[in-house]
């Protein structure tokens, strides 16, 4: 049934024009942003953004600070709904079932779309409980599935070998890089449809950053990743697709290699050659 729906949808996708020329991925769609506007109160932060997110690929969003890339990322799991006065326009459609997540219950959206934040933010609990948190939130409290999925998630975040002997110790005893990988494991444990990463390495040293980048390149084989970064090299190294944003608008979107070697827009070219930003 599910598979049937999926193929049905895929046929539909071929008819939808790619938002920006030929740049859009030809693979399966996991989500599609259509004409998305976003306001912080009276200030418009996103203006008519169109973006197609490919299934099980890494999509990077780059741009100068204040360009709206983090704002866009936080639309995907409706984080903005936590604060009063924010409003959306347009759609973010989630596939395969083709629903507009802007109109879904934000709590349900977040059950499907995980997030890792700029600063590592583990809970003041044990390593085990941190990874199990997302499962407990979903009503999974039995020991066996918890143990299994916690181990699975920690291995997926390449942290298992470092912490397997001290799962009951406080997460605050870990180094910054380990804490961030713990947060990735925490987000992975409930097996999200999409994993959002908001500048996940900006608070880390180069070695810890390298470990996380390495992890992300492995991760995307099984999970759809959207990452915001203001480190262009990072986007070039780890992503399949890159979106360049400026002043709340999506300027250019394409296959990462193409965007960095042959940008179509002057603005993109200026940014990636370091003329501003």
């Amino acid at each position: 049934m599910q598979r049937q729906l999926n193929t049905l949808m895929n046929e539909q996708f071929d008819d939808i024009p790619a938002p920006l020329g030929e740049a859009s991925p030809a693979t399966e769609l996991r989500a599609e942003v259509r004409n998305l506007d976003f306001w912080y109160g009276d200030t418009q932060a996103l203006k008519g953004v169109n973006l197609r997110v490919a299934d099980r690929k890494v999509t990077a969003m780059i741009g100068p600070s204040g360009c709206g890339k983090s704002t866009l990322l936080r639309c995907f799991n409706r984080m903005h709904d936590l604060y009063p006065g924010n409003s959306y326009g347009g759609e973010i459609r989630l596939f395969p079932e083709d629903r507009n997540l802007i109109e879904m219950d934000p709590g349900l959206v977040r059950l499907r779309i995980g997030m890792v934040f700029q600063k590592p933010n583990p809970f003041p609990k044990s390593i085990f409980e941190n990874v199990a948190a997302g499962l407990r939130v979903r009503g999974i409290n039995a020991k066996k599935p918890l143990d299994e999925r916690v181990e699975q998630a920690l291995q997926g975040a390449a942290l298992w070998d470092e912490v397997k002997d001290r799962l009951q110790e406080s997460a605050y005893g870990l180094s910054g890089g380990q804490q961030q990988r713990l947060c990735i494991a925490r987000a992975l444990a409930p097996q999200p449809d999409i994993l959002l990463l908001d500048e996940p390495t900006s608070a880390l040293d180069p070695i810890a950053t390298a470990k996380i980048e390495d992890l992300l390149t492995k991760l995307h084989k099984s999970v759809t990743v959207i990452i915001v970064t203001h480190n262009m090299q990072q986007a070039a190294r780890i992503s399949n697709y890159t979106a360049y944003m400026h002043m709340g608008k999506l300027v250019e979107y394409g296959v990462t290699d193409d965007l960095f070697t042959a940008p179509r827009e002057q603005m993109t070219s200026d940014y990636i050659t370091g003329r501003f930003g």
Partner: peptide, 19 residues
Amino acid sequence: TSITTSADRDSGMPLYGGA
């Protein structure tokens, strides 16, 4: 063991991470 999401979903994995 690798983390699987979308692939599992196709093979009937429940939505919302098992809730």
